[in-house]
Design a protein around this nucleic acid. Sequence first.
DNA 1: GCCATAACAGAACAAACATTCTTTAACAAC
DNA 2: GTTGTTAAAGAATGTTTGTTCTGTTATGGC
Lengths: 196, 196
Amino acid sequence: MPRPRLFPRETIIPAAMRQFWRRGYHATSMEDLILATGASRAAIYEEIGGKRALHLACFPAYQAAIVSPALRGMDAPGAGLEAIAFYFETQISLAEAEGLPGPGCLVANAATETAPHDLAVATCVEAHNSCLQHAFERALGNACPSLGRAERTDLAAFVTLTAQGLWSMSRGVESAKPLRTHGHILINLLRARLSK
Amino acid sequence: MPRPRLFPRETIIPAAMRQFWRRGYHATSMEDLILATGASRAAIYEEIGGKRALHLACFPAYQAAIVSPALRGMDAPGAGLEAIAFYFETQISLAEAEGLPGPGCLVANAATETAPHDLAVATCVEAHNSCLQHAFERALGNACPSLGRAERTDLAAFVTLTAQGLWSMSRGVESAKPLRTHGHILINLLRARLSK
DNA sequence: GCCATAACAGAACAAACATTCTTTAACAAC
DNA sequence: GTTGTTAAAGAATGTTTGTTCTGTTATGGC
């Protein structure tokens, strides 16, 4: 009868995700991951596989734990520009509560570091950006039903890009004020555009 | 009489910059740098110092070779929104000519990878962002002299953020089209804002 | 309590790594 | 051609690294 696992994926992956999120992939050693997760190297290898497998396992975990809750406000019927503004304010407040500089966005970080050289990571980044973009697209559509579909898609991609830029910036600022300023500017620019 | 150097800084640094720009710091080994520069490890250590010193030397080189020329269009008297548009279009065309996906922006990449954990890198990032922001600020001021100083500063910071997001995106796209689309959207949003 | 089985701890391994060191080479003055 | 000097090549060094391996432990059925 086998011994029940002390370190199931549900324990290892969240801890590893926080480590990769803050330090990135190449600057994180297996030793760092062992310390962060509390599991031994054999436990990690047995349950997940190697370092790269563990890194790749963090993306769905990030989607479930961070991204989906973040976008929930945009699921409501009729959610519009206020929902986008709420998304930004909520995420900025969470970052502020957690302490700035923060880790930014796991996916945005990976987009810069590993995605250009790892197709599996690039696929995760692509899926994540699509997910964000679709959420913003729905909200923009609600906010301005007369907006052309092509322009709505482009604006949504732009909002996604700006969000990613914001989270990257949050890795280097000690105050939430510039983050909020940028969030407000984006919303104001969108509002001006949609009210034409 | 000492032997003249075969590998002066002016030879080593540009080649190393391209390597760090594409692969980042931690994913680049000294062996990679030796191959990229053509210099031996002793030549690199003698002329520059170690890996970190070489990385840090790349930022001023990047400013001189890439950033200053990019911003030159905004130095002209009265340069306004068209100069900002020109900046984006020129940089996108260069990236396209070089082949996409591209390396993005060395500083934006470093902002994500090494700046959060290396004060010297963070200082370089901060200086770079200030430089961009001041250029955009001047252009926005020219475009709309009645714009409040605080709002001008905030919009300029927003343009800087969006530019960084764009270069990060360019690391993962194979076509310049979405880059151009984003550039156009930004300019249009700014134009709409400034014409109020 | 014994057993078979899988989980876990951490040592071992081979390779990769940044940096230092030793030897060789290039140079101009003489 | 010799000399003194520094530059360069690449081997050597000690450390770090990701992964594998061996021994120990925990487990439930019997």
